[in-house]
Design a protein around this nucleic acid. Sequence first.
DNA 1: AAGTTACA
DNA 2: GATT
Length: 210
Amino acid sequence: MSETERPGRPAPALVVRGVEVFPGLLDPSAQAALVAEIAAVMAAAPPVQPETRFGRKMSVRMTSAGKYGWVSDRRGYRYETQHPSGVAWPPVPAPVLALWHRVTGLDRAPDCCLVNLYREGAKMGLHQDRDEADFGWPIVSVSLGDEARFRIGGIERGGPTDSLWLKSGDVLVMGGAARLVHHGIDRVRGGSSTLIEGGGRINLTLRVVD
DNA sequence: AAGTTACA
DNA sequence: GATT
């Protein structure tokens, strides 16, 4: 962490295992504006279902915006400057960047906005975000659309966990001691929102990659 | 193991 | 069926 924190960042309503939770930070019109921006990102860089290193397809569909996108295939996890099709990732939409600065208080911008699209039945197992160069930078997670059960463990795998339901407009910050906490999505409550065309949930994850 | 499934 |  090399930059000063900006005063006036909002206080989290609750903290779960060190993860800061800002329920309902985005009102419905702000959510709709973000969804419109992300729809344009997905039109330019269509979501794909990545494979793991063992050739198993993930249930979540992914794309990215920014200098880097997170990808997974039989070669493993990494950041790439291009969508698998070869096109550059579209820029991170300005309202997404504004949300990052508001909630982190940082001057430094993220260089990746990972877009996770959870259609009916999609889940994500417990994992750590550890493909970035400097864990001093926080991660910001934005929930849009259907509600989802978010599970939070510890730094070590296999320990106890807690869970909470995330709703559209909720924002999380994983930073400091909670930067490397295990987290995942147990399940998505289909039909709990009409925000996403075709149904489901979109999660934006903002990171500083290098 | 950013996989899935089983089980108490 | 939901949860851990």
